[in-house]
Amino acid sequence: MKDINVFKRFLSDVKYVNELRQLQHINDSCSRQNRGTINKVKRRRARFHPMEQMNEIEFRKKYRYTKENMRRIIEIVRDDIEVDYYQSMKRNQVPIDLQILSAIRFFGGTEHPQLTAMAHGVSLHTMAKITRRVASVLSSKASRYIRMPATLSEKERMMRSFQSLSNMPQVIGALVQTTVRLQLEASRGQANKSCHSGTQSPMATEELVHLQLVSDAEHKIRDLDIRLSDELDLNTAPELFSLSRIKERFEQNEFRGRILLGNDSLSCSSSLFTPVQYPRNKSEELYNQAHAVTFAPAVKCLNIWFRRFGILGSELLGTFGSAKQTITALALLHNMAMDWNDPSVVKFTLSDAESNASFYKPIFLPSAHGLEEQRNRKEFIKSHFSGN
């Protein structure tokens, strides 16, 4: 009987040991799963908040704005940014303020786009989506921040600011033109057609986007026109002006008695005065000197704009529509910076800045072209510069 009891206790102990082994196996499995989860969490790139974790100097270098002015931009844009929530990973959605910060840092072109994406804990593909979204929202507000003066008092104030530079009257804006390179993506339909046909066709082509802007004397962009090369003829600069909305507004007498200034690549007209190509007397020389000084804010405006947003000097990627939204958004952001006297981009002299943006080379037209318009300029010179 005693041996039987011992044997029963042995069987009970064996059962107990087996149960312990099963429990240990379950615990080991759970631990491995937990370690895998922990490793995944560790591998997920931690996002930082530059407004809190960068000092003011470093922040200005990377984002081209002071922290205070960046907060203003975030408040202006925040409510209009759509948030994409992924069903399985809502908690990993990029916060709206970081979306705006990453887009503006990308626009600044201070580093390779991959580094900008990594710094904000997103992929390059997500970075591209964010920048398009932010540019779309900003460009929708363009009419509020990019506009010619509307009231009489605004027009008079702008004319006085130009006249104070070199005593040239009636000037309400200075017009300058340049180009931006665009890597134009093929449409989805063209890409699919190429795949099905088996042909090897390039997925993207490079285009030139032509920009025309009107600046005021305080280096703000007052009017912006954006067109692709195929919309223009070989005589690019005059054609761009002839198609622009600003020319149409002058022809409709919206700015009666006032003029724009342009450079030698443009044709002289009743609303757009260019330098005299071959000055023949003292009055024309004085006019050319005054024209150069009064036109200079447009050149400086363009260079400050290109310097603040480095992607303008490199290459945009996408469709023409997205490029147009991005360029418009950058003009809007530039005007905000000028309104707020943002010091992030150091002011520089005109001679130091001339290489930052490429202007149209002068295309001197035959003298027979626009004789009536040149007479208007002659009358202007006679009225305002003959007595100097």
Rank of each mutant, 00 (worst) to 15 (best):
M338K: 05
V94E: 06
L316F: 12
R160T: 14
I74L: 06
A329W: 00
R132K: 13
N5K: 13
N34H: 13
D230V: 04
L332S: 00
R227S: 00
T179C: 05
D223L: 01
N5W: 09
K42W: 13
S194L: 09
V346M: 11
G108H: 04
F295R: 08
V14P: 05
I304G: 04
I327G: 05
H210F: 01
L232M: 02
Y287Q: 02
I81A: 13
S242Y: 03
F309G: 01
I4N: 15
M51W: 15
Q24I: 11
Q212W: 00
Y65C: 02
L350F: 07
M338D: 01
T131N: 08
R72E: 09
F255D: 09
L330P: 02
D216P: 05
L266P: 00
P297D: 11
V6P: 04
N288Y: 02
K129M: 13
L260T: 02
R375G: 12
Q114E: 14
F7S: 12
H334I: 04
N303R: 14
V214Q: 03
T131V: 13
K361E: 06
K382W: 08
L302Q: 06
S265F: 01
A204H: 15
V214E: 03
I76D: 14
S197Y: 06
L260F: 04
Y65L: 08
M336I: 10
E111T: 06
R71C: 07
Q24N: 14
L23G: 10
N281P: 07
Y360P: 11
Q87S: 05
Y360C: 07
L243M: 09
L286F: 12
E373I: 03
D3A: 13
L371V: 11
D342K: 01
A290H: 05
N303S: 10
D97P: 01
P362M: 06
I363V: 10
R188K: 07
V83T: 09
D342M: 02
F359W: 10
R147V: 08
H291W: 03
I304E: 05
R132P: 01
P50L: 08
M70C: 03
R249W: 12
Y360F: 07
I172H: 03
Q114M: 10
S242I: 01
G121P: 12
N253G: 01
I96S: 04
I4R: 12
A337Q: 00
A103K: 03
Y287D: 00
L101D: 01
S102K: 04
T126Y: 09
Q93V: 13
F380S: 10
D352V: 07
R60T: 12
Q87K: 12
E156V: 11
S201P: 02
Y63N: 02
N253Q: 08
V77E: 08
K61T: 07
H210C: 00
T326Q: 14
K129A: 07
L224H: 01
L165M: 09
H334T: 09
L98D: 02
S123P: 13
S123D: 13
K193H: 12
H25I: 14
C30L: 15
R21H: 07
S161A: 13
D216R: 01
V293M: 11
